[in-house]
């Protein structure tokens, strides 16, 4: 390392001027036959919904391919951005993102990552963002073998598991409090 990183500062209350855009919450077109909706609410330490969250997700497509610069794993599903951003201020704190359900990712011999999405959460009051992961409640077998979940104390793993709904999954985030979501140092 030659240079030190630029420090983080809070996203503040007015990010809606610059960051959200209409297609932002859609990592894939909502009419795609395999599109899923991930809905949830972020709560603060008093149990109140955080009405000014900026939430981003990043993950692989159903075949474990990434829509990044290098197309890791080969070209991802056409039209799949891999990334979605939800930002709303003054709502009821509920977020909704549309994406494809990620597939398992084999990173090397004997190591398979369970289907997961990386989540970045920003808000006024957070001087830097926090990172968590969404795993899927209908992937119990894959989850049991996931090397990252294995690092999470067993009694807290449940905070990372999204539960199936009619058209997707529900994933609530508790920034603080008795049900505090696991956040990661990456």
């Amino acid at each position: 390392m030659i240079y030190a990183t630029t420090p983080s500062q809070t996203v503040g209350p007015y990010f809606a001027i610059g960051l959200p855009w209409p297609e932002g919450p859609h990592a894939i077109a909502p009419e795609h036959p395999d599109a899923i909706r991930i809905t949830g609410t972020a709560y603060d330490g008093a149990g109140d919904p955080i009405a000014d969250t900026l939430l981003e997700i990043w993950g692989a497509d159903p075949d474990g391919r990434y829509a990044d610069l290098w197309e890791h794993g080969g070209p991802a599903t056409p039209g799949f951005r891999g990334f979605a951003r939800f930002g709303e201020e003054g709502g009821d704190g509920r977020f909704e993102l549309i994406t494809l359900k990620p597939g398992p990712v084999r990173v090397s011999e004997g190591i398979v990552l369970a289907p997961h999405l990386d989540v970045t959460l920003f808000a006024r009051g957070m001087l830097r963002h926090v990172v968590t992961r969404i795993y899927f409640g209908d992937e119990a077998q894959a989850n049991a073998a996931d090397p990252i979940l294995a690092r999470v104390p067993a009694e807290r793993r449940e905070t990372l598991i999204a539960q199936p709904t009619e058209n997707g999954y529900r994933f609530d985030i508790h920034v603080q409090g008795p049900a505090e979501t696991v956040f990661f140092a990456v």
Binding site: D44, G45, A46, D48, I50, A60, Y66, H72, V105, V107, L113, A123, R124, G125, M126, V130, V131, P147, I148, R151, V152, P153, R156, V175, Q176, E180, T181, V182, F183, F184, A185, V186
Partner: peptide
């Protein structure tokens, strides 16, 4: 009310 109180869990960087 907007910071985690539990320690962050170390995550090895994956793909």
């Amino acid at each position: 009310l907007r910071h985690p109180k539990q320690p962050l869990v170390f995550m090895p960087q994956t793909i």
